[in-house]
Amino acid sequence: SDRLLASAQEVPHRCKDGRVLWGEVVSKPELNAQGEIVGYHGITREITKRMQAETKLKLFRALLDNSSDAIEVLDPVTLRFLDINAAGCRALDYTREELLSMSIYDIDTAYSAAPQKVLAQLRESGHALFETIHRRKDGSTFPVEVNTVSVELDRPYLLAITRDITKRKALEAAQQDVARHLQRIIDFSVLLSSANEAIAQMENEGDLLRTLCELAVHHVHLRLAWIGQPDNEGWFQTLAAAGAALGYLSGIRISTSVEHPEGQGPVGQCWRDQKPVYIFSISQNSHMIPWAQRAETFGMKAGAALPIFRGGKRWSVLVVYHSEENIFDADLQKILT
């Protein structure tokens, strides 16, 4: 029976000086002729160092699994996972067992494109810091920063500390959007100042109109700026234009009449209503249907039509096009109105 087999126990022993030593006691029952247990004999060996090592290992494992960053141990040749902490499993939504059967190539969408660059850094300095994209079990992705070091123990290892930088990237993107927005406001403000200066200095009307278009393209990085005026039959004629997308105007037809499809766009509406008209997305605006495909060909995605008055009466329309959608927000509209 089981009670007659040898058993092993780990037992602490307190020394006279207060130290605690651990011993492994292996004991076996001693039987008499009738098969009855009459005693035990055993062997005790000290295992204090082993117990201390196991305690440290458990502590190290607990620290790893309670880290907010993913910590991965990789084979430097195959890049297969040899170990990964709980945070790494949660981030990727795999079990530890699943990840131990996988490699970096299974979860990193960008690393396979340039592994030699990272490996070269590791060979040169033993360390590599880079950003990449990781893919979860459900196929969704997220940006990470990976800090990798080479470790030599019983064999070479790669230790990678991986941090999810989704929030950082979102913050950086928001800061860049704010910076671009402020720069646009500055650019348009400089444009208006330069336009006023040109109006004050130039006497030739043709030169002035052309200069206004060139200033608009230069200062606010427009694809096209043009000034149009309707003829006696209500069809707009180009008085001046500038920009990389000048070809857009070749053969274009725009009317002042709402009865024509060519008059239902921003230019015709601006002329009739005598106030600015903004197109936040040319491809999504139904009134731009006659010109949308042509505008896309020339890289124009948003536009504005601004009335020009002379002697208190409508005289022409300044039309501008930009390569970004939704550029003409409330702040820019205040400047342009």
Score class of each variant (00 low, 15 high):
94 Y>S: 02
101 S>Q: 14
54 E>A: 14
31 L>K: 11
29 P>K: 11
120 A>Q: 14
93 D>G: 03
81 F>L: 06
66 N>W: 03
112 S>M: 11
33 A>L: 07
49 K>S: 08
93 D>L: 12
108 D>F: 02
75 D>A: 05
47 I>P: 01
110 A>N: 15
54 E>N: 08
106 D>Y: 13
70 A>G: 14
125 S>P: 00
74 L>N: 07
47 I>H: 03
125 S>A: 10
38 V>N: 07
53 A>H: 10
76 P>H: 08
94 Y>I: 01
42 G>Q: 09
88 G>T: 00
122 L>S: 01
86 A>N: 13
37 I>S: 01
113 A>L: 14
108 D>K: 03
122 L>Q: 11
38 V>Y: 10
97 E>F: 05
53 A>D: 15
91 A>G: 12
81 F>N: 03
125 S>F: 11
69 D>Q: 12
36 E>L: 08
27 S>I: 02
92 L>Y: 11
90 R>F: 04
82 L>E: 14
83 D>R: 07
66 N>D: 07
86 A>M: 14
122 L>G: 01
82 L>P: 00
64 L>P: 00
126 G>Q: 12
76 P>Q: 09
65 D>I: 01
111 Y>F: 15
125 S>R: 11
99 L>E: 02
40 Y>S: 06
52 Q>Y: 08
47 I>C: 06
57 L>F: 09
104 I>E: 05
92 L>C: 05
106 D>R: 05
43 I>S: 09
46 E>Y: 09
36 E>N: 08
129 L>N: 04
114 A>H: 13
130 F>L: 06
116 Q>D: 15
78 T>P: 03
51 M>D: 01
100 L>S: 10
83 D>K: 08
78 T>M: 03
84 I>H: 05
123 R>V: 00
107 I>C: 03
43 I>W: 15
110 A>D: 15
99 L>I: 09
30 E>F: 05
52 Q>L: 15
